[in-house]
Amino acid sequence: MHLDPDIADFIQGEVMIILGTCSRGKLPDIGRGVGCRVLAPGNTVEVLVSAWQWPETVANLRDTGEVAVTFVRVADYRAYQIKGRATLRDCTPQHYSLCNRYIAAATAALVDQGVPTAMTEMWLMPRDLVVAHFGIRSLSIKTPGADAGTLVGERR
């Protein structure tokens, strides 16, 4: 399925990125992403992950590829979740510069909320990046409220 430009902009913005993954033995794990880009024509996503900070998440991405990525804006809790089956790709210089831009924007957004950079540096880690590359299988709303959990779209 394809993302609306509005949602594509949202997930490529200064949002916090949380990855849920799953091992072969069905054990879930959780980790953070440090940048996202939506590839043309809008049905594929790349999420950057630090293999240094989140080794189990990267191992799960390699082993099963099953992933649910939640994007949440700290200012208002607007949130979406995208699911898919990822493959791992090597990180290119463009990915590194994307990561740097993302960390700068996300840090600014967190500082706006009163979070000190000493703390944001603990979460937004650009070390040993890998790229989770996946086609969008489903998109759902995760913003708290009546629509939370509503499926926006699903690939048939």
Binding site: I18, G20, T21, I30, V72, Y77, P144, G149
Partner: peptide, 29 residues
Amino acid sequence: MAFQTSPISHVVLVDEEHVGLSNQFFATT
């Protein structure tokens, strides 16, 4: 998928072995 990521759950310590997570709105949980 057998997992759910929620950005705004509250977690409390129940006892030495258990935690409690707030379940606000996700019927799918």
